[in-house]
């Protein structure tokens, strides 16, 4: 029983990690809190949904499309919108992101209505057992493995490529990066694109596991916040630690207190972590 809860928590935590990885990147590099992050996840989910509903495309195939589409969208939003206010106070970009969130959510509502939809794949209910106690849904394990693959890809891009070096240089000192020839505007756009692309991937996986609707974004943004804060900024491991921590505590918390307490638990953790360890559980003491 306890083991089953733990496994459920870990698997959920993997998805939380993927949700937060893009938000963490954007926040860490550009000091932008992307309030619209959950809305981008929603767009990723709907990309998969429509490709599945219209073309019958398998979600694990459409994953590539939703990443690509969301990357392009993120690139454009940063390049032609956020870059115009990036030097104003961080607070201004926060509100701009709010505006983008309202826009995306309502555009989705107008186009697709508030109906709750589901991607019904044939293998959706497949599962296997470990010993006699633990049942594991196959699709969640695959999703979890994908999370790891995508995290490693992110890590590779940031640490082993020229693009990654530009991104890190820009995040440390914008003017210095510009002086050594980095195209800052483009680097910012690519960074935002990568972050939003990861959100797209999270959306695809979310759509296989849960029902989706245009208004699901707000909740996901809040969850991503919690994960980023718990894990702390500035490390690729942060979102993974944060995601697992949230997934596991939520699993046990709702088991003990009932599912209506899920949000109370996550947000209480959020506030406590902020007060006690504002740099996240990985970060140094303040």
């Amino acid at each position: 029983m306890l083991l089953q809860i733990l496994v459920n928590g870990i698997l959920m935590g993997g998805l939380y990690a993927l949700m937060a990885i893009g938000m963490s990147l954007i926040w860490g590099v550009m000091n932008i809190i992307n309030i619209a992050h959950g809305s981008f996840i929603m767009l990723g989910a709907f990309t998969t949904y429509w490709l599945f509903a219209i073309l019958g495309m398998d979600p694990f195939v459409s994953l590539a499309f939703s990443i690509a589409l969301l990357f392009a969208l993120g690139y454009g939003v940063q390049r032609y919108l956020i870059n115009y206010v990036i030097r104003a106070s961080a607070f201004i970009t926060l509100i701009l992101a709010f505006g983008i969130e309202i826009f995306i959510n309502n555009a989705a509502l107008v186009s697709w209505t508030a109906d709750i939809r589901k991607v019904q794949v044939a293998y959706g209910a497949a599962n296997f057992s470990l010993g006699n106690y633990v049942t594991i849904p196959t699709i969640r394990v695959v999703a979890f493995l994908l999370v790891i693959v995508i995290s490693i890809a992110f890590f590779y891009i940031l640490n082993r490529t020229n693009l990654g070096r530009s991104i890190r240089a820009t995040s440390q000192d914008l003017d210095a990066a510009r002086l050594v020839g980095v195209d800052v505007a483009k680097t910012y756009a690519i960074t935002f694109g990568l972050g939003v692309g990861a959100a797209g991937a999270a959306g695809t996986l979310w759509s296989i596991l849960f029902p989706i609707s245009p208004i699901m974004g707000g909740e996901l943004t809040l969850k991503s916040f919690v994960v980023v804060i718990i894990g702390g900024l500035g490390s690729m491991l942060g979102p993974i630690i944060g995601g697992l921590a949230l997934g596991i505590t939520e699993a046990f918390g709702t088991n003990w207190f009932g599912s209506t307490y899920g949000n109370l638990i996550s947000f209480t953790i959020l506030v406590l972590v902020l007060i006690i360890r504002p740099k996240g559980i990985l970060g140094g003491a303040d």
Binding site: L96, G99, I100, E101, I102, F103, I104, A107
Partner: peptide, 8 residues
């Protein structure tokens, strides 16, 4: 939707 646009 337009409200979002106004904010932006």
């Amino acid at each position: 939707l337009f409200f979002g646009t106004v904010v932006i």
